[in-house]
């Protein structure tokens, strides 16, 4: 962590994000924030609360309601040297913009041989757990991680969210920044005041343990942590790794842990087939097969749309019980 930090302040993740955005606007006149309802309203989750009043309608502005236009316009702003920070209201609303993402956002440095690059950030709330309406709880991060030329960052704590968001905005290449809706206000912690960054591509060791490695990110970190605490009570040492960024992926931290424990569980709330958990599993199998003592186990959502049915919604999302079951399974080998 690089920092010029003076004091600590207790805040939620959404407050930490707001703090990071304000600092970015303050430090760099090229930073512009735009999206649906990010202006006077401050965003549906209030992540941009007060920013338009403080920095003006040219730096923080509402756009027409069209996601392809938002991302496409951001690309043009990036080509012209600004640092666009777009908000997509929910990750599940990103789909109209996927042509812009897949066809252009990740390609511009490559197609112009670095003559142009896109220092753009696309923020989006993602994931379930708070009984949102249909389409509001998707976890489409694997689509983006599968797209060459874009980075993918998913924080799990207020402190990380601020440092990673500032790093993402300062990064010369496009970054998707997914914010777990479940964590926006449910977690508070002490966050350094002032500017600091957390480098992209460095995973965080949440808990240390010798028996099982649980790899996760975003909204699943607290779930894994609870399972790890329960396992510890039974004498099982669980090492929880919060990836923080999917691209670049900190393979080194993953493999070092696997070499120690020999047992791997990957937890995400995305659908099973083709998810990023599968990429991690394959990497571990390719790079550390000699250290494995048990099959790699994925704990994920289902190959079904995230359910809009409130009374049964919680059964979609992995919970500590499911992770504990996976821990017992790998410990049985």
């Amino acid at each position: 962590m690089t920092a010029t930090v003076t004091a600590l302040r207790t805040m939620t993740m959404v407050a930490a994000i707001n703090d990071a955005l304000a600092l970015a606007l303050e430090r760099d006149p090229d930073v512009h924030i735009f999206g649906e309802d990010v202006g006077i309203m401050g965003g549906v989750f209030r992540a941009t609360d007060g920013l338009q009043a403080r920095f003006g309608t040219e730096r923080v502005f509402d756009t027409p309601l069209a996601e392809a236009g938002i991302v496409g316009m951001g690309i043009g702003m990036g080509l012209a040297g600004l640092k666009p920070v777009a908000e997509i209201q929910f990750a599940g609303f990103l789909y109209p913009a996927l042509d812009q993402v897949l066809s252009h956002l990740g390609r511009y440095r490559h197609r112009t041989r670095s003559r142009y690059h896109l220092p753009m950030v696309v923020r989006a709330p993602y994931g379930g757990g708070v009984h949102t309406p249909e389409q509001h709880a998707d976890s489409p991060e694997a689509i983006l991680a599968h797209t060459p030329g874009v980075k993918v960052v998913i924080p799990s704590t207020p402190r990380d969210a601020k440092g990673l968001l500032l790093a993402a905005i300062e990064d010369p290449d496009p970054v998707f920044f997914f914010e777990a809706i479940k964590l926006y206000r449910s977690v508070k912690e002490e966050v350094p005041e002032g500017h600091y960054t957390i480098p992209l591509g460095q995973a965080r060791l949440v808990t240390e343990g010798d028996d099982v490695t649980v790899i996760c990110y975003g909204g699943m970190v607290e779930v894994a942590q609870k399972a790890a605490d329960a396992a510890r009570a039974h004498g099982i040492g669980v090492e929880v790794i919060d990836l923080r960024t999917l691209v670049p992926l900190d393979t080194g931290t993953i493999l070092a842990s696997v070499q120690k424990t020999g047992r791997v569980i990957v937890v995400t709330e995305a659908p099973r087939t083709g998810g990023f958990h599968s990429e991690i599993s394959a990497t571990v199998a390719e790079e550390a097969i000699d250290f494995l003592r048990a099959p790699i186990v994925r704990v994920t959502g289902f190959d079904a749309p995230y359910p809009p049915f409130t009374s049964i919604e919680d059964s979609y999302r992995p919970n500590p019980v499911r992770v504990a079951k996976a821990i017992r399974k790998v410990m049985a080998y």
């Binding site: 392809a68 236009g69 496409g72 316009m73 690309i75 043009g76 702003m77 080509l79 040297g81 252009h104």
Partner: peptide, 12 residues
């Protein structure tokens, strides 16, 4: 897809 890019460059 180039049309929104032109809007962004112009706005910049």
């Amino acid at each position: 897809t180039q049309y929104p890019h032109a809007v962004g460059a112009a706005l910049a």
